[in-house]
């Protein structure tokens, strides 16, 4: 192995562990977080094992099932294909950070009301994708667009019908809240 590539201070003792840890600073569920992580530590594993946030699930570990979906700077991403070290300065939201002030996110509420899960293992990932798509104006609001946008989240129980229903129901509450928010913002600005 060519040692000359290690021009960074994080010299990795190859084959003898995970290399020297490095510091990563990011905002996790609204809180400033500073962590020592191994260079090859994956965000999903850091969330679950280092930070004890077990809501984010490990399914395939290869970006194929979506169980590990989190928001990074507001966008849905597979935390299994992202190094923790790559999150420097970013805002990471997990399912634990989806509710606000003790109130469930509209998506969480509608998943309950629509019975949008069976075993529940994929549910955190489903809800993270669903909440991101409601906030993304580039994604259409019709059923076909929602299905397409959700296709990166597999549900082996097959609760898709109720998941779709839950998302469309959540949209009504979400849009009402967003509208209220914009009114408040306008009032705040005046």
């Amino acid at each position: 192995m060519d040692d000359s590539v290690h021009s960074s201070p994080n010299k990795s003792p190859l084959g003898t562990g995970d290399g020297e840890p490095l510091t990563v600073n990011f905002t996790l569920n609204g809180k400033a977080t500073s962590l020592q992580v191994a260079p090859n530590a994956v965000l999903l594993d850091v969330l679950r094992e280092q930070l004890q946030l077990g809501g984010t699930k490990k399914g395939c570990d290869h970006g194929q099932c979506g169980a590990c979906t989190v928001h990074v700077d507001g966008q849905a991403m597979n935390s299994c294909l992202r190094l923790a070290a790559m999150c420097e300065g970013q805002h990471v939201t997990t399912v634990e950070g989806l509710s606000r002030d003790g109130e469930l996110h509209p998506v969480q509420q509608s998943f309950l009301e629509c019975d949008a899960f069976q075993c529940g293992y994929c549910t955190p990932g489903q809800m993270m994708s669903a909440s991101a798509l409601l906030a993304d104006e580039r994604i259409g609001t019709d059923d076909a667009s929602v299905k397409e946008a959700m296709s990166g989240n597999i549900c082996r129980c097959g609760a898709y019908k109720n998941i779709l229903e839950a998302i469309q129901q959540a949209r009504l509450a979400y849009d009402a809240t967003a509208e209220r928010g914009s009114v408040q913002r306008k009032e705040g600005a005046a």
Binding site: S7, S8, N10, G17, G19, P39
Partner: peptide, 9 residues
């Protein structure tokens, strides 16, 4: 996963 060094360009 095999270990590797990490740096930011």
């Amino acid at each position: 996963m095999r270990p590797f060094a990490f740096s930011r360009a």
